[in-house]
């Protein structure tokens, strides 16, 4: 196992940040921690990067124990924290040289690993890190986390607040790093990114709701889901909330996802109910659940 957590718990005063969490990440795997802010994702990262001692449980990374062998772990892993943590008043190149030197290596030695990311920021190598745009900061931080050729890469919310185009590019970079044999643990609050991981853990309020491949989690969804559309979204939601057979209704893009309490659902019944309520342009079609549906059902 590349990463192992056994019954890890951590509290801050009264707040139980992480409660009895266990999971394994295989070598070479791209594993996602998926959950909202406050779920406990950063606490998990801080424990397995040896920056925080758990209250209970054991954990190891690349075969090293997080408490006993903390120095070995620090040499073996790369960590990109959620908050930009490079030296703002050093230039791009100085930051990278600094991190390479600390780990006893040089930029040249592991250049192949960072090349396709670094070339994008190289034109700005003499600019101070504090003056970079958000997207460029993120690329520099990733280079610095990779410069000592880590076996395991930890990325805490690398795409939070990042627009969809830059997010897509970032995930393409991660896939390429995975192909070079690096084990990656990444966290994100964006559920659509879950589908890009080999396996994911859905977490909320310090607890794991489910661990599996994303498609397997979706396949376990217990209900049939229907895309329901109408001319007025707000009225549609309000009307459905008053429907006696409703199990759940959640807006999803231009439609709502509707599930029914009954095993035998008649679209025609619902359609006439909505029509009587004054809605028009009504459409009802079966659709596939996604990770957000699964998360919401599990979090209930």
């Amino acid at each position: 196992m590349s990463i192992t957590l056994n019954h890890i718990s951590k509290s801050y005063k009264k707040l139980k940040a992480v409660q009895d969490i266990s999971f394994n990440v295989e070598p070479g795997e791209l594993f996602g921690l998926i959950g909202p802010d406050g779920a406990g994702k950063t606490t998990i990262f801080r424990i397995i990067t040896t920056l925080l001692i758990p209250d209970a449980g054991t954990a190891s990374v690349a075969g090293f124990d997080v408490i006993k062998d903390y120095q070995a772990i620090r040499n073996t892993v790369g960590y990109m924290p959620g908050r930009f943590s490079l030296y703002q008043d050093l230039t791009v190149e100085e930051n990278l040289t600094f991190f390479a030197t600390i780990f006893g290596t040089t930029i040249a030695e592991n250049y192949d690993l960072i090349e396709d990311i670094y070339v994008q920021i190289e034109p700005f190598k003499d600019r101070r890190a504090g003056k970079l745009s958000g997207g460029m900061k993120q690329k520099l931080a990733l280079c610095c986390a990779l410069i000592h050729k880590p076996k395991v890469l930890f990325l805490d919310e690398p795409t939070s607040g990042v627009d969809p185009v830059s997010r897509k590019e970032f995930w393409e970079m991660l896939k390429r790093l995975q192909q070079k044999g690096i084990t990656i643990l990444v966290s994100t609050p964006y559920m659509d990114e879950a589908a890009l991981c080999d396996r994911i853990a859905l977490i909320q309020d310090g607890k794991i709701l489910e661990i599996d491949a994303p498609e397997a989690i979706v396949n376990k969804f217990p209900k049939k889901i229907y895309n329901v559309g109408a001319d007025n979204m707000y009225k549609l939601i309000r009307t459905l909330q008053g429907y006696e057979h409703l199990y759940s209704v959640f807006p999803f893009g231009e439609f709502v996802h509707y599930t029914d309490k009954r095993d035998s659902f008649e679209a025609a019944d619902l359609k006439s109910y909505l029509k009587n309520a004054g809605l028009t342009d009504i459409s009802i079609e079966a659709t596939q659940p996604n990770i957000e549906d699964a998360f919401m059902e599990l979090a209930k």
């Binding site: 959950g35 909202p36 939070s160 957000e292 919401m296």
Partner: peptide, 24 residues
């Protein structure tokens, strides 16, 4: 300005219901 960043999916949708209500 990015009112729902990092918010869980259920709350995110409840938030949008509040938006619809205000617009209504």
């Amino acid at each position: 300005d990015e009112p729902t960043g990092g918010v869980d999916p259920i709350t995110r949708r409840q938030f949008w219901e509040m938006i619809y209500k205000a617009a209504d």
